[in-house]
Structure formats: C-alpha cells, structure tokens
Design a protein around this nucleic acid. Structure first.
Lengths: 117, 117
DNA sequence: GATATTTACGGCCCACGTAAATATC
DNA sequence: GATATTTACGTGGGCCGTAAATATC
C-alpha cells in the first residue's frame, strides 16, 4: 500500500535527473535520504527500478514505465491540491483567518460548537 | 503540499460513514487518531471540511466536494499500485526472490554491482 | 447515563542528516 | 583523487493509543 508521496516525487526526480545527487539537490534532501527512499520504494513494489551504470545509476525499463505511472499520480495530486486551493479562496469567509493556529496538537475541527442542525 | 494518503483515505471514510467512530473502526485506527487526521488535513487545506451536527459531525459542501476529488486521487493510487503489481509479476525473474531482506536500514538498490554499461 | 468528538499525555517508530565506506572513472 | 551511491549511527518529529474532558441526546 503506497502511502508516501515524497518518495514517489523523488523517484520521478531521479529518473528525470538521471542521478541521485541531482535529484536530491532539486528536492532539498540529502543524497542518502533519496537513496534510502529509492531502496524502500523498490522493496515495497518488488520491482527493480534502477541498475548501476558507470559511477551512477540508470533506470530499468520497468523503472521508466512506473515513473510514467507515478507522474500521472502526481498530476492527480496537483489537481486535488488546486481544487482545495480554489475552494479555500472561494470560501475564505467560512474560515475567516487561521489566526494563531494556537493548538500544538489539537484538531480544531469545531472552533465554536454551534447548537445543532 | 499533500503527502499523507492515510489521512486522505480516512477523510473519505468519514464522509462515507458519516461519523468518526465508524470510519476509525473501518480503517483500524482509534477515534482520536482519525479526529486528529481530520484536524490536520483541515488546517493544511485551509478548508472547513466538517461541522457539528447533533452528537456527531456532518461534512460541509466544500468537504463533500473535496471528498470527490480525494476519491479520484485514491483511484489513481490504485492504478499505480496495480501497474506496479503487474510489472512485478511480469518481471519476477529479475528480482528472483526477496529472500531475507536482511538489511535493516539499507536500500539494497544494487545487490551485485555488475561491472558497467 | 450513553454516544460522539476532542484534547492531554506519554511513547514509539520512521525518516532524516552527517559521516564513513565502497565503487567507478 | 574526484564523483556517485550506499551503509552505519544517532537524533528529532510526527503520529498513534489510552484516558480524561466536553458536548449532545
């Protein structure tokens, strides 16, 4: 079960950049972090995504195919986020202002529990 | 930036079930966990997703709209996972057997670093 | 009092960064 | 020796579950 979108973004970045170091710089991670992300993803999917090539790595055919699927998924994420942003702007009166976001842990689902119905 | 699919699944579950307790049971979480997930999601999106209704809660119009978007996103996740499974089965010879998965932390990207090219 | 959501508290796991090791050029 | 990936190690943040608090019926 896929749950981590960061890893998926890094995966696509590595395929696009052609190297872990370049992808890590792009994403603001250390190279070690991205290397581990790839390893975890690879194990979870059970697919060999990269193979060594000279000093670096190169995506396998399967890796490139899955990267295409991952891009579509990321596109859908973007669509969701855009929809959320649009709704947030449109209903900016409903949540007047995030104010302080005082609660450190709380959910603040209901700020003022209005009577009912 | 959305990164947590667990929360999105819980969000849809709450909208579908109509209550936090039912959704939590479905997803195998405590009610407190799901309540916090909703609160975090709501803050991150800047959208009021639920409002109190009697003893429980009820999705707002915006919440229902975003739940629809979330369902599409989750569908795309399913598509990605299915593609990965298909590729994993198809190329089951490339990764002969997960064997022991001995490494506790390592990425195992390259099990045997073959010469080059 | 029963049901439902939220908050407080404590703890654990996971993923990260730094640094060292390994490998190719 | 320089570049690139991986591994070892320690640490901090995030998320969870339990339990208590709050609110509605």
């Amino acid at each position: 079960m896929i749950d981590d979108l960061h890893t998926l973004r890094s995966f696509v970045a590595v395929v696009d950049c052609g190297s872990v170091v370049a992808a890590a710089r792009h994403r603001g991670y250390s190279t070690a972090a991205v290397s581990r992300q790839l390893g975890r993803l690879q194990r979870r999917l059970g697919v060999r995504l990269f193979e060594p090539a000279g000093r670096g790595i190169r995506a396998t055919d399967e890796g490139r195919r899955l990267a295409d699927e991952a891009r579509q998924l990321i596109t859908q994420v973007r669509i969701f986020e855009d929809a959320a942003s649009a709704i947030a702007r449109e209903a900016t009166a409903t949540l007047p202002a995030p104010k302080a976001l005082s609660a450190s842990d709380g959910s603040l689902l209901v700020t003022a529990r209005t009577p009912s119905q």
